[in-house]
Simulated scan of single mutants.
Amino acid sequence: MQELIGTGVALITPFKADGSVDYPALDRLVDFQVDNGVDYLVIMGTTGENVTLTDEEKKSVIQAIKKRNDNRLPMVIGIASNDTRVVVEQIKNTDLSDYVAILSVSPAYNKPSQEGIYQHFKAIAEATDKPIIVYNVPSRTGTYVTVNTIVRLAHDFENIVGIKEADGDMIVAMKMVQYTPPGFLVISGDDAIALPMTLAGGAGVISVIGQAIAQDFSDMIRYALNGDVAEAYELHYKISPSIDMIFEQGNPPGVKALLHQMGICEPHVRLPLVAADEDLNERMKAFLESY
Protein backbone atom coordinates (compact mmCIF):
# COMPACT_ATOMS: atom_id res chain seq x y z
CA MET A 1 0.00 0.00 0.00
CA GLN A 2 2.76 2.45 -0.95
CA GLU A 3 0.11 4.77 -2.44
CA LEU A 4 -1.15 5.47 1.10
CA ILE A 5 2.19 6.48 2.61
CA GLY A 6 2.60 10.25 2.81
CA THR A 7 0.00 13.00 2.69
CA GLY A 8 -3.59 12.34 1.76
CA VAL A 9 -6.07 15.19 1.88
CA ALA A 10 -9.74 15.03 2.89
CA LEU A 11 -11.24 17.22 0.18
CA ILE A 12 -13.90 19.82 0.90
CA THR A 13 -16.99 20.18 -1.29
CA PRO A 14 -17.08 23.82 -2.50
CA PHE A 15 -20.49 25.49 -2.55
CA LYS A 16 -21.85 28.60 -4.23
CA ALA A 17 -23.79 31.27 -2.33
CA ASP A 18 -27.07 29.56 -3.31
CA GLY A 19 -25.90 26.30 -1.74
CA SER A 20 -25.27 24.43 -4.98
CA VAL A 21 -21.99 22.59 -5.62
CA ASP A 22 -19.32 24.81 -7.19
CA TYR A 23 -17.76 22.49 -9.77
CA PRO A 24 -15.22 24.98 -11.22
CA ALA A 25 -13.91 25.52 -7.67
CA LEU A 26 -13.72 21.76 -7.20
CA ASP A 27 -11.59 21.55 -10.36
CA ARG A 28 -9.26 24.25 -9.01
CA LEU A 29 -9.00 22.41 -5.71
CA VAL A 30 -8.05 19.11 -7.32
CA ASP A 31 -5.47 20.78 -9.58
CA PHE A 32 -3.97 22.54 -6.57
CA GLN A 33 -3.39 19.20 -4.82
CA VAL A 34 -1.79 17.64 -7.88
CA ASP A 35 0.45 20.64 -8.46
CA ASN A 36 1.63 20.95 -4.86
CA GLY A 37 2.95 17.57 -3.83
CA VAL A 38 -0.04 15.85 -2.23
CA ASP A 39 0.20 12.04 -2.44
CA TYR A 40 -3.45 10.96 -2.59
CA LEU A 41 -7.03 12.27 -2.44
CA VAL A 42 -9.74 11.24 0.03
CA ILE A 43 -13.29 11.93 -1.13
CA MET A 44 -16.69 11.71 0.55
CA GLY A 45 -15.35 12.24 4.06
CA THR A 46 -16.48 14.43 6.94
CA THR A 47 -14.55 17.43 5.58
CA GLY A 48 -16.49 17.06 2.32
CA GLU A 49 -19.79 17.60 4.21
CA ASN A 50 -20.97 14.31 2.70
CA VAL A 51 -23.79 14.00 5.24
CA THR A 52 -25.46 17.07 3.70
CA LEU A 53 -25.10 15.94 0.07
CA THR A 54 -27.95 14.22 -1.72
CA ASP A 55 -27.25 10.88 -3.40
CA GLU A 56 -27.25 12.61 -6.79
CA GLU A 57 -24.85 15.29 -5.57
CA LYS A 58 -22.51 12.62 -4.18
CA LYS A 59 -22.44 10.88 -7.54
CA SER A 60 -21.81 14.16 -9.36
CA VAL A 61 -19.05 15.27 -6.99
CA ILE A 62 -17.34 11.88 -7.20
CA GLN A 63 -17.52 11.95 -10.99
CA ALA A 64 -16.18 15.52 -11.13
CA ILE A 65 -13.19 14.70 -8.91
CA LYS A 66 -12.48 11.51 -10.84
CA LYS A 67 -12.62 13.36 -14.17
CA ARG A 68 -10.43 16.25 -13.06
CA ASN A 69 -7.91 14.05 -11.30
CA ASP A 70 -7.61 11.90 -14.44
CA ASN A 71 -5.59 9.22 -12.60
CA ARG A 72 -2.92 11.73 -11.58
CA LEU A 73 -3.24 10.86 -7.88
CA PRO A 74 -4.51 7.72 -6.12
CA MET A 75 -7.96 8.11 -4.58
CA VAL A 76 -9.60 6.78 -1.42
CA ILE A 77 -13.39 6.82 -1.04
CA GLY A 78 -15.29 7.20 2.22
CA ILE A 79 -18.12 4.70 2.72
CA ALA A 80 -19.65 4.57 6.19
CA SER A 81 -22.88 4.40 8.18
CA ASN A 82 -24.02 3.55 11.69
CA ASP A 83 -25.96 0.69 10.06
CA THR A 84 -23.56 -2.11 9.10
CA ARG A 85 -25.94 -3.49 6.48
CA VAL A 86 -26.02 -0.13 4.71
CA VAL A 87 -22.21 0.01 4.50
CA VAL A 88 -22.04 -3.53 3.13
CA GLU A 89 -24.69 -2.79 0.51
CA GLN A 90 -23.05 0.46 -0.53
CA ILE A 91 -19.72 -1.30 -0.97
CA LYS A 92 -21.30 -4.07 -3.02
CA ASN A 93 -23.15 -1.57 -5.22
CA THR A 94 -20.24 0.84 -5.77
CA ASP A 95 -17.72 0.56 -8.61
CA LEU A 96 -14.50 0.61 -6.60
CA SER A 97 -12.12 0.15 -9.52
CA ASP A 98 -10.93 3.78 -9.37
CA TYR A 99 -9.94 3.65 -5.69
CA VAL A 100 -6.95 2.21 -3.88
CA ALA A 101 -8.87 1.85 -0.62
CA ILE A 102 -12.09 2.47 1.32
CA LEU A 103 -12.04 4.74 4.38
CA SER A 104 -14.79 3.74 6.82
CA VAL A 105 -15.46 5.52 10.09
CA SER A 106 -16.45 3.57 13.20
CA PRO A 107 -20.23 3.75 13.72
CA ALA A 108 -21.47 6.97 15.32
CA TYR A 109 -24.41 7.49 17.68
CA ASN A 110 -25.12 3.79 18.32
CA LYS A 111 -22.11 3.61 20.69
CA PRO A 112 -21.32 -0.07 20.06
CA SER A 113 -19.09 -2.14 22.33
CA GLN A 114 -15.63 -3.13 21.16
CA GLU A 115 -17.05 -6.48 20.04
CA GLY A 116 -19.70 -4.60 18.07
CA ILE A 117 -17.01 -2.47 16.40
CA TYR A 118 -15.02 -5.61 15.58
CA GLN A 119 -18.07 -7.33 14.07
CA HIS A 120 -18.93 -4.19 12.08
CA PHE A 121 -15.52 -4.09 10.39
CA LYS A 122 -15.48 -7.88 10.02
CA ALA A 123 -18.67 -7.63 7.96
CA ILE A 124 -17.15 -4.86 5.84
CA ALA A 125 -13.90 -6.75 5.28
CA GLU A 126 -15.79 -9.85 4.20
CA ALA A 127 -17.91 -7.85 1.74
CA THR A 128 -14.99 -6.78 -0.47
CA ASP A 129 -11.41 -7.51 -1.47
CA LYS A 130 -10.66 -3.77 -1.56
CA PRO A 131 -8.22 -2.51 1.12
CA ILE A 132 -9.98 -0.89 4.08
CA ILE A 133 -8.78 1.90 6.36
CA VAL A 134 -10.59 2.02 9.69
CA TYR A 135 -11.29 5.57 10.87
CA ASN A 136 -11.17 6.23 14.63
CA VAL A 137 -12.48 9.67 15.58
CA PRO A 138 -14.14 9.38 19.00
CA SER A 139 -14.82 13.13 19.25
CA ARG A 140 -17.39 12.62 16.47
CA THR A 141 -18.53 9.02 16.95
CA GLY A 142 -18.82 8.82 20.74
CA THR A 143 -16.80 5.59 20.95
CA TYR A 144 -13.16 4.58 20.65
CA VAL A 145 -11.63 1.91 18.49
CA THR A 146 -9.21 0.63 21.13
CA VAL A 147 -5.68 -0.56 20.49
CA ASN A 148 -6.75 -4.15 21.22
CA THR A 149 -9.59 -3.95 18.70
CA ILE A 150 -7.48 -2.55 15.88
CA VAL A 151 -4.70 -5.07 16.57
CA ARG A 152 -7.28 -7.86 16.42
CA LEU A 153 -8.73 -6.55 13.14
CA ALA A 154 -5.28 -6.05 11.63
CA HIS A 155 -4.28 -9.64 12.41
CA ASP A 156 -7.59 -11.23 11.37
CA PHE A 157 -8.25 -9.53 8.01
CA GLU A 158 -5.62 -9.01 5.32
CA ASN A 159 -7.63 -6.29 3.61
CA ILE A 160 -7.87 -4.14 6.75
CA VAL A 161 -4.63 -2.38 5.92
CA GLY A 162 -4.60 0.68 8.15
CA ILE A 163 -6.23 3.06 10.57
CA LYS A 164 -6.81 6.77 10.35
CA GLU A 165 -6.18 7.55 14.01
CA ALA A 166 -7.78 10.86 15.04
CA ASP A 167 -8.02 10.49 18.80
CA GLY A 168 -5.08 12.88 19.24
CA ASP A 169 -3.37 10.63 21.80
CA MET A 170 0.28 9.95 20.94
CA ILE A 171 0.52 7.07 23.40
CA VAL A 172 -2.39 5.29 21.72
CA ALA A 173 -0.88 5.96 18.29
CA MET A 174 2.50 4.55 19.31
CA LYS A 175 0.88 1.41 20.73
CA MET A 176 -0.95 0.92 17.43
CA VAL A 177 2.36 1.20 15.58
CA GLN A 178 4.01 -1.17 18.04
CA TYR A 179 1.43 -3.96 18.15
CA THR A 180 -0.05 -4.08 14.64
CA PRO A 181 1.56 -6.36 12.01
CA PRO A 182 4.48 -5.13 9.86
CA GLY A 183 3.18 -3.05 6.97
CA PHE A 184 -0.04 -2.03 8.74
CA LEU A 185 -0.55 1.71 8.21
CA VAL A 186 -1.12 3.95 11.23
CA ILE A 187 -2.18 7.20 9.58
CA SER A 188 -2.64 10.41 11.52
CA GLY A 189 -6.10 11.94 11.36
CA ASP A 190 -5.00 14.90 13.48
CA ASP A 191 -3.01 17.60 11.68
CA ALA A 192 -1.48 18.94 14.90
CA ILE A 193 0.32 15.68 15.71
CA ALA A 194 0.82 14.33 12.18
CA LEU A 195 4.55 14.99 12.38
CA PRO A 196 5.31 13.24 15.68
CA MET A 197 3.04 10.34 14.72
CA THR A 198 4.93 9.90 11.46
CA LEU A 199 8.29 10.11 13.22
CA ALA A 200 7.08 7.46 15.68
CA GLY A 201 6.52 5.00 12.85
CA GLY A 202 3.27 6.18 11.33
CA ALA A 203 2.54 6.18 7.60
CA GLY A 204 1.75 9.88 7.27
CA VAL A 205 -1.55 11.70 7.44
CA ILE A 206 -5.01 12.21 6.00
CA SER A 207 -5.08 15.95 6.40
CA VAL A 208 -7.44 18.91 6.36
CA ILE A 209 -4.87 21.74 6.34
CA GLY A 210 -2.87 19.82 3.73
CA GLN A 211 -5.26 20.84 0.97
CA ALA A 212 -4.52 24.53 1.62
CA ILE A 213 -0.88 24.57 2.77
CA ALA A 214 -0.30 21.70 0.39
CA GLN A 215 3.35 21.96 -0.64
CA ASP A 216 4.84 22.68 2.77
CA PHE A 217 2.62 20.22 4.63
CA SER A 218 3.32 17.36 2.23
CA ASP A 219 7.04 18.26 2.29
CA MET A 220 6.94 18.14 6.10
CA ILE A 221 5.58 14.59 6.04
CA ARG A 222 8.09 13.63 3.35
CA TYR A 223 10.94 14.92 5.53
CA ALA A 224 9.58 12.93 8.47
CA LEU A 225 9.37 9.72 6.48
CA ASN A 226 12.97 10.26 5.37
CA GLY A 227 14.17 10.96 8.92
CA ASP A 228 14.98 14.61 8.28
CA VAL A 229 13.71 15.74 11.68
CA ALA A 230 15.03 19.33 11.82
CA GLU A 231 13.66 20.19 8.39
CA ALA A 232 10.30 18.61 9.24
CA TYR A 233 9.89 20.54 12.49
CA GLU A 234 10.87 23.80 10.83
CA LEU A 235 7.87 23.43 8.54
CA HIS A 236 5.65 22.15 11.37
CA TYR A 237 6.15 25.30 13.44
CA LYS A 238 5.66 27.48 10.38
CA ILE A 239 2.33 25.82 9.58
CA SER A 240 0.97 25.16 13.10
CA PRO A 241 -0.82 28.52 13.66
CA SER A 242 -3.05 27.78 10.68
CA ILE A 243 -3.96 24.36 12.10
CA ASP A 244 -5.26 25.96 15.28
CA MET A 245 -7.28 28.48 13.29
CA ILE A 246 -8.95 26.11 10.83
CA PHE A 247 -10.49 24.01 13.61
CA GLU A 248 -11.42 26.93 15.88
CA GLN A 249 -14.96 27.25 14.48
CA GLY A 250 -15.42 23.72 13.21
CA ASN A 251 -14.47 21.73 10.15
CA PRO A 252 -14.72 22.56 7.26
CA PRO A 253 -15.73 26.22 7.85
CA GLY A 254 -12.15 27.02 8.91
CA VAL A 255 -10.34 25.45 5.99
CA LYS A 256 -12.92 26.84 3.57
CA ALA A 257 -12.20 30.32 4.93
CA LEU A 258 -8.50 29.76 4.31
CA LEU A 259 -9.08 28.41 0.81
CA HIS A 260 -11.32 31.43 0.13
CA GLN A 261 -8.47 33.75 1.10
CA MET A 262 -6.31 31.83 -1.38
CA GLY A 263 -8.84 32.32 -4.20
CA ILE A 264 -9.69 28.64 -4.63
CA CYS A 265 -13.32 28.58 -3.47
CA GLU A 266 -16.03 30.51 -1.66
CA PRO A 267 -16.39 30.03 2.13
CA HIS A 268 -19.95 28.70 2.06
CA VAL A 269 -21.02 25.63 4.05
CA ARG A 270 -24.37 23.92 4.60
CA LEU A 271 -26.42 24.10 7.77
CA PRO A 272 -26.09 23.15 10.54
CA LEU A 273 -22.55 24.42 9.90
CA VAL A 274 -22.05 28.15 9.44
CA ALA A 275 -19.22 30.02 7.77
CA ALA A 276 -16.26 31.33 9.75
CA ASP A 277 -16.83 34.78 11.22
CA GLU A 278 -15.16 38.03 10.14
CA ASP A 279 -12.59 37.94 12.93
CA LEU A 280 -11.32 34.48 11.93
CA ASN A 281 -11.26 35.47 8.27
CA GLU A 282 -9.14 38.52 9.09
CA ARG A 283 -6.71 36.40 11.09
CA MET A 284 -6.52 33.90 8.23
CA LYS A 285 -5.72 36.75 5.86
CA ALA A 286 -3.00 38.05 8.19
CA PHE A 287 -1.52 34.53 8.50
CA LEU A 288 -1.29 34.14 4.73
CA GLU A 289 0.25 37.59 4.32
CA SER A 290 2.97 36.78 6.85
CA TYR A 291 3.39 33.21 5.58
Rank of each mutant, 00 (worst) to 15 (best):
V269Y: 08
A64G: 01
K67A: 15
G168V: 03
L103N: 05
D156S: 13
H236L: 04
D277N: 15
L185K: 14
D70W: 03
I43D: 00
D167P: 00
F217K: 07
P24R: 06
L153P: 10
V88C: 11
G8V: 01
Q211R: 08
A127C: 12
P24E: 09
G8F: 06
D228K: 15
K58Y: 02
M44N: 14
P24T: 10
T13E: 08
G116N: 10
D216P: 09
A125G: 15
Q211A: 07
N69G: 02
L258S: 10
Q211P: 05
A108Q: 09
T146C: 10
A214G: 07
H260V: 04
N71R: 15
I91T: 06
T146D: 14
V38W: 02
Q90M: 13
P272A: 04
P196C: 04
K122P: 11
E165L: 02
V42I: 14
R222C: 01
P253A: 07
K111T: 09
E289T: 12
K256W: 05
Y118H: 11
S188K: 03
M284S: 05
L53N: 00
V229D: 00
F217H: 13
V61I: 09
V186T: 13
K164L: 07
M176I: 14
T146A: 09
L11K: 01
G142C: 03
P24N: 04
V38G: 00
I171T: 14
I43T: 12
V161S: 08
I160A: 05
D129P: 04
D70K: 12
R72A: 13
A203F: 00
D216N: 13
